[in-house]
Nucleic acid binder design. Structure first.
Lengths: 240, 240
DNA sequence: TTCTAGTTGTGTACGATTTACACAACCGGA
DNA sequence: TCCGGTTGTGTAAATCGTACACAACTAGAA
């Protein structure tokens, strides 16, 4: 179901089932929030954006950006609003992650939070936003430690079978940079030649015909063939 | 975040951000429910359990079992309660699927529903519960059509890389039955010899040393090596 | 001008995995 | 005793994954 209608429709014999009137009146009901886990790259390493909780029990700790879901707002819209309130970039990748609803997760009131995974490409500075290496997060408020774990798991999982990395890189990257994203998130080295072969064979990225000049041999620049999430049948990451 | 605390802590300058007092008072706030999609096998085919919605706008339609989340109850517990209210089997597989929160999904009130995927082995009859082939569901109330799609996608996806099938079969099955589960859910045929080789090599199932007698050559009976969700590195389903 | 350090770009041989495929064993019932 | 229908098993070919080395190119230093 999805509301009290069905609760009423089906048998009400279960002791813990709430009578509809109880919901309508007031109080100890359950609130809905969203939390967004924004990942981005800073000097090659994966970082997560956090904001300070300046209030009550959890004061001084960090937490992911979030907020209540408004009465007329979908979950996706609420998540994007919370993301863009802190980080300007519009159009970043955003997908639902998991709903966290343990009764004690927020000590002050009963809140069910739908967590979202966000990927932001530029990682520009924003006031009040602190970026931490994803492998070394500070103590987090609420159950946001578990949220962070879930987000990292999801990101790692999708990295192997989708083109999700497009959310972290702006067009015009070298294959070395691209590969470093994979190595950073997966935590292991990949073979340069096999990696190149694979991503080109899958048509994941496309050469732009331009090169970047540096102190060494110029590197070809690439862009993503698709900037929407697509699944590939063969894993992008075994050794190369 | 996870509640109003953080909303207060961070800048309140966003126009649509709710003042905390508004939440505490009353009304048009958002309710939380769970919906459970119970899958099971009936004569070899995948079926889903539905109950009738006997009320209001959606009267006469079918919907998945569900109900409000109680103030002191976790989401997982709420889902299991809703499942077991209709279907007796305790200990069935149950995992969170997705949170559905479009404002209009329940025409009568604003409800965010956290959907769960359930697998029930026996598929015994229960009063008020109707089983439909998953490929041919009746018109569903609310957005339960989308919920059903998501549940099927998840089941298909996990079938390839986990031992999730243990949720559908009781110990003491033949390999033919086991394979048919895969073929039914995936919608394509698998090679009998390769299938046997793979599930034995992965130690997914174990021979019990017993056989089942029928009108033909007796078939060895198997059980699952693990009855908890485990992931395998190599896909169980390519052709065999 | 030449040399060097450091990076980018490319192909091939080996092994492992996946796939296709056919036949004998076994039972109940006619 | 024969027959239909199912279960159980192995092997060869193709595909895919993996390891690996060397030439090309540039900026900057000598």
């Amino acid at each position: 179901m999805s509301g009290e209608r069905q609760s009423r429709a089906n048998k009400e014999d279960h002791p813990v089932e709430t009578a509809p009137s109880m919901e309508d009146r007031h109080v100890a009901s359950v609130a809905v929030a969203v939390d967004v886990v924004p990942f981005g790259l800073r000097d090659g390493a994966l970082h997560a954006a956090l904001v300070r909780v300046g209030h009550a029990d959890e004061a001084g700790l960090f937490a992911f950006p979030g907020g209540r879901v408004q009465p007329v707002e979908s979950l996706d819209v609420a998540a994007r609003r919370c993301l863009e309130r802190h980080l300007s970039p519009t159009g970043s990748f955003l997908e639902q992650l998991y709903a966290f609803g343990e009764p004690g997760r927020d000590p002050s009131s009963r809140v069910v939070s739908v967590a979202y995974l966000a990927l932001v490409p530029q990682t520009e500075e924003a006031p009040g936003v602190h970026w931490f290496p994803s492998s070394d997060l500070p103590p987090l408020a609420y159950d946001h430690g578990a949220v962070a774990d879930k987000a990292l798991d999801r990101l790692r999982g999708k990295l192997a079978y989708t083109n999700i990395a497009f959310g972290l890189l702006a067009d015009g990257f070298t294959l070395a940079e691209f590969q470093k994203v994979y190595e950073t998130i997966l935590g292991r080295a990949l073979d340069r030649r096999n990696f190149r072969k694979k991503v080109l064979a899958l048509e994941l990225v496309r050469p732009m015909g331009r090169v970047r000049h540096g102190p060494h041999r110029p590197a070809e620049l690439f862009q993503f063939a698709q900037r929407a999430l697509t699944t590939v049948e063969t894993p992008l990451t075994k050794k190369g």
